[in-house]
Amino acid sequence: MLTIKNLKAGIADKEILKGFNLSVKPGEVHAIMGPNGSGKSTLANVLAGKPEYTVTDGEVLFAGKDLLDLSPEDRAREGLFLAFQYPVEIPGVSNINFLKTAIAEIRQYKGLPPMEAKDFLKLVKEKQALVELQVTLANRSVNEGFSGGEKKRNEIFQMAVLEPALAILDETDSGLDIDALRIVANGVNKLRSDNRSFIVITHYQRLLEYIVPDFVHVMYEGRIVKSGTKELALELEEKGYDWIKKELSQQVEA
């Protein structure tokens, strides 16, 4: 599904990803944890194709295609989805019009006929219920005036509507109370399937109690420094990141 080899990327002159490697197979859920500033959001943004980042080395294969060669919109059309850490407010663009346009363009790219209006409305209603997003989307602008929790749920709602092959969730849990967290996790779990993969970026082990990962990776200074299974998350919770940092410096000294 996704293979990242020795990815180096940064912004302006600053290198942030310093040789990142990861392989995700269909149906797998990978969690990436790590202290603030270790490059988790950068990884997510680079994979989604945010123009301000430059890739200096490495390769990324996504469903057999060279991902880095595709425009951001084509990555999305190929089935990549990023749930943003900070969803943007877009005044004047209604949620519904936005989703309608996205679906129309994705279907056109895939050579599918346009979706019927009533099918679209049905889909929206069904997925809104899935994430218990109660705001009326029709006449409200994208994320405008949404609470923090609503914004995060709107990301998961969009993911549910677009049904991506690979979803990257960037700290979707931060700022959510326990109920909202459960709703979001529930939404994600309902979408888990043998051919859909997830990369869940999080700070806290808490989310991983609800979305149980197949693998847990620790990212530090632009690289994965430790990988394991879900028990690694518990260990991190207990010992904190200093433990990893210490281990790393010992390795360097040795």
């Binding site: 989604a48 194709g49 945010k50 123009p51 425009s71 951001p72 919109e73 990555r75 999305a76 059309r77 990023l82 943003f84 969803p87 943007v88 877009i90 663009v93 936005f98 989703l99 346009t101 996205a102 679906i103 363009e105 994705i106 790219y109 994208v142 969009q158 677009l162």
Partner: peptide, 9 residues
């Protein structure tokens, strides 16, 4: 970028 990341050209 947000719009493009959802597949809009």
């Amino acid at each position: 970028f947000y719009l493009r990341a959802r597949g809009i050209g």
